[in-house]
Write a protein that binds this DNA or RNA. Structure first.
Length: 691
DNA sequence: AGAGCTCTTATTTTT
DNA sequence: TAAGAGCTCT
């Protein structure tokens, strides 16, 4: 049955009903891009394409879930929607690696490392490098090194092909670390996030058998947020559609804000050169914002040169003018925003209709204080609350080790947790033994645990107490492994928690009873999650799949339930919309950020993008186009920066908005005028005595 | 392991 | 300024 396209506008309909071959849909903000993807999927299904021959790739789990939801709704058929391949690039890559792991020599229980794990591996490599890099004293910024490794992988640069730039010490150390890092992952039987893209590409490019299996698997491939794809992702997509070229990508070059993370705007800018015979359709009618808001957005983005060029228009009417509020200082700015939020609420808006967007998380603190003072309820999106629940990661490390004894990172994590007298010196001895004999560290641990020969231990410089501790560990992990293989995930994990006395340890280590209880609850939460998994588990490798997918989930979503104002960075706001939006701190050195104006050497990961304000302008554009009905832009004339009060200039982007769209308010003037005369008199009177 | 000290550094972060 | 990291001492 054909899908009803009568409610689509002409370019939307053209995109939805496009036949085969490459298609680029340039979807301006609020132009109905998700609508186009979902309708197109429905259209293809209507033509008789089976659902398992269609793949739609996104960047976030959330986007994938929403899309599946909308397709299910459109079709009125959950079962068909469930058969579509709809997920993140990383999830697809994981599926492929799981199926083809043997070609790469990876065992069934292979691990997927998240960012925290990756940092651990880099630290490990640096430690092993110590006596080799002349300055063993150097305290490297581990994150900066990992960022370079990751950027290299995103750019599909192999370890041996990495080219350090002359004179950049971080490039130099990365050139040392990257090959060893990759070798470590391999020996641990682990893939990191970036490998989930890179390794499938290498397999597809290099193995005819694998290529034959996957290049025909999907007859139609769709990619959302295409402007955010990196080189490795482009290559993956190319491989998937190599035989038929049935590729639809949807994105907006004007919303490309992740080049600093390896996204290549060229993928969308030069799509037509990369995919022969490509069609391009522009969606320029905006269904989100009023004309004043769109005019401001269009005016700002028009200052960028490298773009396809779109002009958004809307039938929603002129709407209210944009308020440009100029505050004396940041306190006044934050206070006014809080008050104005409250006024909006009094005017009939829900709290959840309102959002405050900022460039840097640093700005959020003051805002939070003021919102609390004015009793404005809020939720913060993003922030740095990655799921760093140590106690959960500790338990997961035991599970990983039980499933994959090669996982040295997990072994190192738990070998002395809870404390069992196996300190760093002992671990180094185990590591040295493992290296010398070319066996895994777990095999060394097993050997030590079983050693009945005191002499052998002595030779290795290990005390009898260590042997006892390690044989206990081996017993615990072996028991766990047996339990897991028997399919009793919850029971054996609970047995583990008891065997290592985790609850007692958490209680002993926690500063308060409530903190202890929270950590225990986190562990219970993991057990609950395991129980839900166990209820629907199928297949020999189900628990492995569960653990790997856990790595791909970025922890807890912000709590969107409840009526609350949203606080988020401009980056975090992409894809969202609100009736009323406040963009705060529209000042030079904040937006555009100082770091993009004069980048510091250590951070100049990519010299070409480093001094590029166009990405900052796009960020501004993303912010403006989040607003449906009312936009506020605020700035302060002075701001405390590095502990000093400094004068601030309005953002160049603000000056790019035509004056007639802005209604300027001088908050300092208004504050002065608002002070009652009597108060003024007594204020001046207080100085009288000092004369 | 943890308290308390000094030193350092100050974007954005879908997986 | 002010938070986080690293260090020393108990």
């Amino acid at each position: 049955m054909a899908v009803d396209t009568s409610r689509l506008n002409p370019p939307q309909r053209a995109a939805v009903t496009h036949g085969g071959g490459p298609l680029l849909v340039l979807a301006g903000a609020g132009s109905g891009k998700t609508r186009v993807i979902t309708y197109r999927i429905a259209h293809l299904l209507g033509l008789g394409i089976p659902p398992d021959a269609i793949a739609a790739l996104t960047f976030t789990n959330k986007a994938a879930e929403e899309m599946r939801e909308r397709v299910a709704h459109l079709l009125g058929d959950r079962r068909t929607a469930a058969k579509l391949t709809m997920g993140t690039f990383h999830a697809l890559g994981l599926t492929l690696l799981r199926a083809e792991r043997k070609a790469l020599g990876y065992p069934r229980g292979f691990a997927v490392y998240d960012q925290a794990d990756q940092l651990g591996v880099v630290r490990e490599v640096l430690r092993s490098l110590k006596d080799f890099s002349r300055d063993g004293e150097r305290r490297w910024d581990v994150k900066a090194i990992l960022a370079r490794v990751s950027l290299a992988k995103n750019g599909f640069v192999a370890p041996d092909d990495y080219q350090p730039r002359e004179g950049d010490e971080y490039d130099a150390i990365t050139a040392e670390v990257y090959p060893r890092y990759q070798a470590a992952l391999r020996s641990y039987a682990a893939f990191d996030f970036d490998d989930l893209i890179v390794e499938p590409v290498r397999l597809l490019q290099g193995d005819a058998g694998v290529r034959a299996r996957w290049a025909e698997r999907f007859r139609f491939v769709m990619v959302d947020e295409y402007q955010d794809t990196n080189r490795a992702q482009l290559l993956l997509v190319k491989e998937l559609v190599a035989h038929h070229g049935n590729l639809t990508v949807v994105g907006d070059d004007d919303q490309s804000i992740y080049a600093w993370r390896g996204a290549e705007p060229a993928n969308i800018l030069r799509f037509a050169d990369m995919f022969e015979g490509a069609h391009v359709i522009k969606l320029e009618q905006n269904y989100r914002s009023t004309r004043h808001i769109l005019a401001a957005a269009n005016a700002v983005i028009a200052h960028n040169t490298q773009r396809h060029g779109k002009t958004l228009w809307s039938e929603l009417g002129a709407g209210e003018p944009i308020t440009h509020a100029v505050a004396q200082d940041v306190e006044q700015e934050a206070r006014w925003v809080a008050q104005e939020l409250a006024r909006q609420r009094e005017g009939g808006r829900r709290w959840a209709d309102l959002a405050v967007l900022y460039r840097s998380n640093l700005q959020a603190k003051l805002l939070e204080d003021e919102l609390r003072q004015h009793d404005v309820p809020y939720v913060m999106y993003g922030g740095q609350e990655f799921f760093e629940r140590k106690e959960v990661k500790d338990v997961i490390a035991y599970l990983r080790l039980a499933l994959n004894p090669r996982d040295e990172l997990s072994l190192r994590r738990i070998v002395n947790y809870p404390a069992r007298g196996v300190g760093p010196a002992t671990v180094e001895k185990l590591a040295a033994w493992s290296q010398a004999r070319h066996v895994t560290m777990w095999e060394v641990v097993q050997a030590v645990a079983q050693a009945d020969d005191a002499q052998a231990l002595d030779d290795a410089g290990l005390r009898p107490g260590v042997r006892r501790a390690l044989s206990e560990l081996v017993a615990i992990v072996d028991a766990l492994g047996r339990g897991l293989r028997d399919g009793a995930a919850v029971a054996s994990t609970r047995a583990l928690v008891e065997a290592i006395g985790l609850h007692d340890d958490l209680r002993a280590a926690a500063p308060s009873a409530t903190a202890a209880q929270r950590r225990i609850d986190n562990v219970e939460g993991l057990l609950g999650s395991l129980a839900r998994f166990e209820a629907k588990a199928r297949g020999a490798d189900a628990l492995g799949d569960y653990l790997r997918k856990l790595s791909l989930e970025s922890g807890e979503e912000a709590d969107t339930s409840g009526d609350k104002v949203v606080l988020t960075t401009l980056h975090g706001a992409k894809g969202l919309e609100f009736p009323v939006v406040f963009m705060v701190g529209l000042e030079e050195e904040l937006l555009p950020h100082a770091r993009t104006l004069s980048p510091q050497a250590t951070d100049a990961l990519d010299a070409e993008h480093a001094s590029d304000v166009s990405e900052e302008r796009r960020l501004c554009y993303v912010g403006i186009t989040r607003a449906q009905r009312k936009l506020y832009i605020t700035r302060a004339c002075t701001r405390v920066s590095r502990g000093r009060q400094v004068p601030r200039l309005p953002s160049r982007f603000l000056l790019e908005i035509p004056d007639e769209l802005l209604e300027v308010r001088d908050l300092a003037e208004e504050a002065k005028a608002a002070v009652p005369q009597a108060e003024l008199r007594s204020f001046f009177a207080s100085f009288a005595g000092d004369d």
